[in-house]
Design a protein around this nucleic acid. Structure first.
Lengths: 243, 243
DNA sequence: TAAATAGTGTCTCTTAGACAGTATGAG
DNA sequence: CTCATACTGTCTAAGAGACACTATTTA
């Protein structure tokens, strides 16, 4: 895809900000909500050398048809995952966030199934690793304004988990209701009543049975798949326990 | 504010997309949910000549400290309103949305109190007018991808109105509960039970009494102001009537 | 007193939450 | 058998929705 200058005069010759796309990639690793980061090059002339940052980079106007495609490309490059849950989080732009000048980044957030990539340098690229979200939030030290962005992403995720089926996208299919409940509890950071949880999930009608799954031990549980992988289901209420 | 090239090498010399900011400005005009549009110049070489579009334009890297400031500036220019409710809606970018080339727009949405600007050309600038949202959605004919963006903005607004105090930002203070209820009903397009509505609003604890307001006729009603104008309050449940 | 709008009381029914119970597998 | 985990039943209390009622003004 190339930029075509059709029968229109060019846009006024304003100085243009840098345009980038960043992706906040969540997974459950080692039983913790985790996010994928890449390490900035150590070269002194690069901004934030050696610091960790969200995966992302400049929009390529020849490769990327639109912003979502650009985000999907970057996600594929870092994780190999092809069709995860991917939604737009927002955009951050200003004069101060990048020492090279005025820049704006379009941020997406992705959920991918539990990844066994250990919490060390990754396999696909050097200097890629999973980090536990809670540790990053406690000691924010990411490049650019990425700590702020990460915080917004976690807030959005935790808030949506209260009333949607989003956590299902963090599991490989088929999964069991106890597994799903565990993911909810991990993300929310609190326990949830089993009976109410099951009623709620089944009433929302977004799961289809997929035969019994041989658990690691004891009684096998029913396995489920998502009826529709295009997006989460919204529950009429929140999970909040009684006041 | 100018772009400073500090002790960092410049960013790689990728072609940069155009960067714009657009604002979806809602108000209640003539008892209808309405949005402010500006007419594109008639000049043949301009994209979408003569069509109506959302107010917005290129980011000015010298004037605008960040995206939000840019949106606030554009809103002030068109309406004179200074500190409305302003939240980010999202961003749209791609090769196809502007004939002049790859572009990305950061979209904000604003709520301003009922405006008496008639549904004709405005006072501040030529070619500015309020349009009823429902008519625009029924016959989408805006420039660029602005019909798509408007639809997303209306969906976001209607969805948030179900469980937040957002409509209060569409009223001038002090306002009465019946007035507020009327705004909810206008935006939602359905009626709401008076008793439940009052209980809910008062329980949410975001209103402070401001003395009785002389109504246009009959019994005067209590006037209220917002306890906190920085953002809406979130209700624990939705407005949905019983199934 | 009538009309109009502001504001309250009350009943019912749904349902979330809590928790105790039963079912079904492994060893 | 026991133990562990999957799954179900039941009680209770909060609160939303529906609607009828009272209150306070103008004309």
């Amino acid at each position: 895809m190339t930029v075509t200058q059709r029968h229109s005069k060019p846009a006024p010759d304003f100085p243009r900000p840098y345009t980038t796309v960043d992706v906040v990639i969540f997974t459950i690793a080692q039983g913790q909500l985790s996010v994928l980061l890449v390490q900035r090059p150590e070269h002194e002339d690069d901004p934030f050398p050696g610091l960790w940052a969200l995966p992302g980079g400049f929009v390529n106007v020849d490769l990327d048809a639109d912003l979502q495609a650009c985000a999907a490309r970057k996600l594929k490059e870092k994780t190999g995952v092809d069709s995860p849950y991917l939604e737009q989080l927002g955009s951050w732009g200003g004069a101060a966030r990048d020492p090279r000048g005025w820049s704006a980044t379009h941020v997406y957030f992705a959920l991918i199934p539990a990844h066994d990539l250990p919490l060390t340098k990754g396999a696909n690229a050097a200097d890629v690793a999973w980090f536990e979200v809670d540790e990053l939030l406690a000691r924010p030290a990411l490049a650019f304004d990425h700590s702020t962005i990460l915080q917004a992403a976690v807030e959005r995720l935790r808030s949506k988990v209260e009333y949607t089926s989003l956590p299902a996208f963090l599991l490989t299919e088929p999964f069991t209701l106890p597994q799903l409940q565990q993911v909810y509890e991990t993300v929310l950071g609190r326990s949830v009543d089993k009976s109410g949880f099951r009623t709620r999930m089944l009433a929302a009608n977004f799961l289809v049975e997929a035969g019994h799954v041989e658990g690691t031990s004891n009684r096998p549980a029913m396995g489920y798949r998502l009826a529709d992988r295009s997006g989460p289901v919204v529950f009429p209420r929140t999970f909040s326990p009684r006041g």
